[in-house]
Design a binder for these strands. Sequence first.
DNA 1: GTAAGGATGCGCT
DNA 2: GCGCATCCTTACG
Length: 207
Amino acid sequence: MSTARLGADFFARPTLVAAVDLIGRRLVRVRRGRRLAGRIVEVEAYIGAADTACHAHRGCTPCNRVMFGPPGHAYVYFTYGMHQMLNVVTERDGFPAAILVRALEPEEGVDSMRRRRARAGRLRMARRDAAWTAGGPGRLCQALAIDRGLDGEDLEASPRLFFEEGRPAARRDVARTTRVGIDSAAPRDRAAPWRFILSGNPCVSRR
DNA sequence: GTAAGGATGCGCT
DNA sequence: GCGCATCCTTACG
């Protein structure tokens, strides 16, 4: 178990390689001097302008420009009128690709995460269990107070948001599936097995 | 200026 | 499994 921080080199690799390697690592959000952290149990890869499920497929816009920049930076996107999603930019500067962090197993600051979820009006469900706190990209961002204010954050240097080496999963414990919620993408891209999950972990989102 | 749709989540059946 | 809330982002006029 290591608390060493993952640097830009970790993400300056082929996206699928970095995505598998990210399973089991720790995402840390520091807020008011306190740590909110969890083990990453689910991610998805979005790779290049040719991937019709990737936000980059319509070109560079003010909202997605971070994805076209250097690796190791946070790309935070707003969708469905109410949800934010946290991504990490991968590959070389100029090539748009990212890993969407879809679910965490809460480890530190769990009560704070639950309070944040409850305050947002999800009281009834928020009491249930820790798994509910950060399973799913929208829930994760809410629990960790991640919003577009963190878009473009340098995760190698930021005091507010970063990754730690944690406890990487054994390769045999990482399962691959197709990505979630991309029905309008081309059939070839819907079929790509670019979602990675920690097998059997209760915090993984649906399916 | 305006309209359509979206990398979701919740509650109910 | 299904409907709906909710509003930013984008494309088009």
